[in-house]
Structures are given as C-alpha cells and as structure tokens.
Design a protein around this nucleic acid. Structure first.
Lengths: 101, 101
DNA sequence: TTTTTATGTTAGAAAATCTGACAATAAAAT
DNA sequence: ATTTTATTGTCAGATTTTCTAACATAAAAA
C-alpha cells in the first residue's frame, strides 16, 4: 500500500535540489493545481518522490512550451483514462455498456 | 541502484514524526555511530527511509534493554555475515578456503 | 492592445535545525 | 560502595529554512 514513493516527507528545499526547479516555481505549480503537497502542523510543505517525478515531467512539458493549464488538462485526461482501464480490468466495462440490454 | 529507500532526503523533524523518537535521541544514536545521515550544504541532517527503518529496529532493541554499544556490535556482525554470504554467492568461498591446496 | 502566464526578487515573520552545555537517573564497572 | 558511563531531557543562542504577500517584468495569449 503506502510505499516510500508516495509518502510525503520531503521539504521544498530538497525538492529544489532534486528537480532543479526554483522554490518559486514549485510553489507556483501548486498554485496552478498541478501538485498537492501535504502540510506539516505549522504549514511547511511536504512532498513525495512521486511528486518529484511529476515535477520533472512538468518541467519537460514546460520546456516544450506547454502551459500549466494544458498540462493540468492532460493530467486529468490521463487520470480519466486510467479509471477506464481500471474498470476494464475489473470487467465492469461490459456491465457498463450493456446495462440496458 | 539508488532506490527511494536509500536516498537521504528526510529532515530530522519528519524522522521524529515517523519513528516517535525524540530529536535528541536521533542525534544521540548518530553520535554513537549507529546511523549516518548526510548533511546539506549548511549542515542540516538528511535521512533515508532505510535510516528510519534502522531507527525503528534500534528503538526496539533499546526497549529490550540493549545498549547502543551492543546494538552497534550486532550491526557490524550482521554486516560481516552478509559480506560472507556475498562471497559465498560469488563462489569465492572455496577459493578462499582452498587457496593453498 | 489588454490580459494572463511564468518567473525572479525582496521583505519580514515564523518554523526548523544546529551545537554545546548542564542536569538527572539508571546502569555498569571498579 | 564509589566512580564512571549511558541515556535521555531541556535550554539558550545562532543559523537555516520556509512561509506569505507583494511588486516587477518579459513573453505569450486573447
């Protein structure tokens, strides 16, 4: 279940070191709804390795000129697709499409 | 190679949360040579998930009344044994014991 | 042309960490 | 029985890290 990859334990300074993204940009991508760090008791941000990988993908897309808004849409689509795949995998695909037949 | 488990990216406050050990104790176990966090540029400690697991083991042994010195010796022995296993696995066992035959 | 996006920078406050020291108790060693 | 070592806690002052909010600017989009 909760693997190391998904545990939110990394502070923003380390994320900066690991991604090369400025602290400003890391916060901005949060503001734009691309990442969702947790917060400690008194408000300091905590990221996971998964977040870091995501930030690296975001950085790549940004270098290609893709805007944060589009990146977000892409991410939402991917999530939707993976949900569909989940349903397929669970054999609910037919159940869904043949409900009334 | 460098998996998430071994990357030193976690600050001592988070280690405290994750292990329940006081910051004082975490530093003390370092002083006693049981753990080896890395340091950031200006000196703040950075731990890995592996370090955290080790700290939990240390905490267990301490609760059983084992002293840090003994814990360290145990760890050194385990390392030695795993080295022996490595050599065995590499087929160097016989080479070692039959050198002069 | 006006608005939005994407960053940088700065300022002041708050949070987190560091080292070193002193204290106290328990346990071990002599 | 006395002395020493081990294991924590706490405190103080300094340093580092992070936070929010604001202002600035160039490029891109509308």
């Amino acid at each position: 279940m909760s693997s190391y990859k998904d545990k939110k334990v990394i502070t923003i300074g380390i994320v900066n070191e690991l991604t090369g993204l400025s602290v400003r940009m890391i916060r901005y991508y949060e503001e734009r709804g691309l990442i969702f760090p947790e917060r400690s008791e008194r408000g300091t941000r905590k990221y996971s390795f998964a977040d870091i990988e995501l930030l690296l993908e975001i950085a790549n897309k940004r270098e290609e000129g893709v805007q944060t808004y589009e990146i977000k849409q892409d991410m939402l689509n991917e999530k939707k697709n993976s949900n569909v795949r989940d349903k397929l995998r669970r054999g609910q695909f037919n159940a869904h499409f043949n409900m009334r037949k």
